[in-house]
Amino acid sequence: MRIQALIIRIIRQFIRDKRSIALLIVAPIIVLSLMYLVFNGDTYQPKLGTLQLPSAISQSLSTNGAIVSTYDTVDEAEAALANQEIDAIIQLDGTTPHVKLEGSDPARNRSVMMLVQKIMQEQAPALSQAAQPPAPVFDYLYGAADMSSFDNFGPVFIGLFAFFFVFLIAGVSFLKERTSGTLERLLATPLRRWEIVVGYMVGFGIFTGLQAVLIAGYTIGVLGSLMVGSFWYVLLIMLLLSLTALSFGTFLSTFANSEFQMIQFIPIVIVPQVFFSGLFNIESISPWLRWLVHITPLKYGADALRNVMIRGEGWGSIAIDVYVLLGLSLIFMAANVLALRKHRKI
């Protein structure tokens, strides 16, 4: 009897908790849909640049699913490769195909290599009358043949963890301020709303700075993730990513009434970001979903981290990402100042 009463009470409570029902049903559907779209999107078409390649081979590359661009000079092709317009340059060195890969994404490298090997098998009789087709030579602009997926994903993961934990902790702390009544007490002092927001950003900013040093140091120093560029840039990007998470978390906490409701934001705002952060090829995401990439803070952070850590690039290639992260932080902070109006108009 008592158990029955308990069950009924739980059912009644749960039915009144619309948010938990939504989390239980809507969120998994959203996440599963995203995974479906991410993994079942178009297969990746390698983008190849050709240098004085026989047209038969170029055509065969196209019909096998590559996007082929023709270049006249080595410089043009190299520039396109460095700008990631193409994934590899193919030229013939006598009868030996020479392939130069961009190299920072093992998945792309593989897809280029597979395609080239397949074409060589097909074209072998046309190229030379020899029974054995010459083995293609591969070299790399960035990275190396032994670059692991972790080297590739490492920068994304450190960005992701920095973002996720800061988001949660900052969000929950700000929420606690509200549920414990201390926010009301703060608002009964001459403290301005923007001062509260800035105070939180700076106070937590100190800890996120520490976190950035620890995570980046551990990944690079202990786990031995590939690291070509400047450690200071890595710290700068991570700090900005954390600040974005901080402002985003405190802002979203305005829409939660308990710690539990804060947790419920994870599948809505964190998990989708993982998909768009660069762990998966953005080009294989369904085109109608691709625009989402441009509003995910994690994507900018991860892109910049990859540029520094794998490609060893400098300020020029991360400047835009840095400005976007800074801009997003400021937008979320301003939104938070406005959201606090709910508690005090002035």
């Binding site: 009544g181 009301e184 001459p190 108009k345």
Partner: peptide, 21 residues
């Protein structure tokens, strides 16, 4: 009211204790 400058002339104690535990 409400006026931010007046806050320093007012002492307010809410029903909840509103302390940092």
């Amino acid at each position: 009211m409400p006026k931010l400058e007046m806050m320093k002339h007012i002492g307010y104690m809410a029903q909840s204790d509103a302390l940092y535990m």
